[in-house]
């Protein structure tokens, strides 16, 4: 299948810091690819370059066969972009955010108005059409931002952290809308630091850290390749945490800690010294993407 997005040796520096370090990847037509990584991994910078909001320092980006550097306007005609800040205009109504954007993109006032009503209905916002943007919940604002990007029926959608900061219910609604768009045949590049989001929405996931792509593949394949033996979960009393940490350090395996639960990839290491500590339970569980990240980087994903 033809590639809709081709990124080749893309480089971006801010002063002496290299935000994107010669990454290459491609996204097929109708495919959804997620960039997964902690803050500072280079996800947002990569997406801003693709959206034409940031000039690259090296490498090339092609979208639908167009060169992003020299054909920015043509590229943006095919793109729907949802930036991390929803970027909504708070001085105009919910519906006007859509109509004004549609008109800016070249639709006639009439066509933009008709399209806005259809899009509002699709995103379940028709009841809020004439409300102030600030009266919307965080989840609704997010959906409105995605709705705005969908005004021109773009071939490609670029989404920067579509559900960050949303409650589980709102997140599920955003995912539902995105799944519908995807079913409609649009190509999606998104960033996230939620493993679950990547696993639910993405056909393939690029695991990023410090401006590089460490691994790229379908979520299940990544798990099978990098954490195929599953993961170990260690539960202990608060009082035992230091002892568990000391034991794990001695065994020299990477782990992450959430509360008093330790999680580590099952690499066949002998956990005897931990298991024998008083009040400590050791379980084996199937691995997920978070374990892949830990395995590849030796650190936790969410670092903020």
């Amino acid at each position: 299948m033809a590639s809709e997005i081709v990124v080749d040796k893309l480089v971006k520096r801010f002063g002496h810091a290299t935000a994107v370090d010669a990454i290459s990847f491609s996204v097929d037509q109708r495919e959804t690819v997620g960039l997964l990584g902690p803050n500072g991994a280079g996800k947002t910078t990569t997406m801003r370059i693709l959206a034409g909001l940031s000039p690259a320092d090296g490498g090339t980006v092609q979208l639908a066969g167009l060169d992003a550097r020299t054909q920015g306007r043509e590229v943006r005609r095919l793109l729907g972009v949802v930036t991390q800040q929803d970027g909504l205009d708070v001085e105009i109504s919910v519906r006007e955010n859509l109509t004004v954007y549609g008109y800016l993109c070249g639709l006639s006032r009439q066509a933009s108005a008709t399209r806005a009503d259809a899009v509002l209905t699709f995103f379940g916002l028709e009841g809020r059409a004439n409300d102030e943007v600030d009266a919307l919940s965080g989840g609704m604002k997010r959906r409105l931002a995605i709705a705005r990007a969908w005004m021109t029926r773009p071939r490609i959608i670029i989404l920067d952290e579509p559900s960050t900061g949303l409650d589980p219910h709102s997140r599920a609604r955003v995912w539902e809308n995105l799944a519908e768009l995807k079913a409609g045949g649009v190509t999606v590049l998104m960033s996230t630091h939620y493993m679950e989001e990547a696993a639910v929405l993405c056909d393939r996931v690029a695991i990023m850290d410090r401006g590089r792509i460490l691994a790229l593949g379908p979520p299940r394949a990544l798990i099978a390749e990098h954490a195929g033996r599953g993961a170990i979960e260690i539960r202990c009393d608060e009082a035992q945490r230091d002892a568990v940490r000391a034991a794990l350090t001695a065994i020299a395996v990477p782990w992450r800690e959430m509360g008093a639960v330790f999680s580590l990839p099952d690499e066949g290491a002998d956990l005897g010294p931990v298991a024998t500590l008083a009040g400590v339970q050791v379980h084996h569980r199937p691995a997920h993407l978070e374990d892949v990240f830990l395995r590849l980087t030796g650190k936790e994903l969410v670092d903020d």
Partner: peptide
């Protein structure tokens, strides 16, 4: 971020 949004249009 509303200006950034306008720049995502052509």
């Amino acid at each position: 971020g509303a200006f950034e949004t306008q720049l995502t249009a052509p």
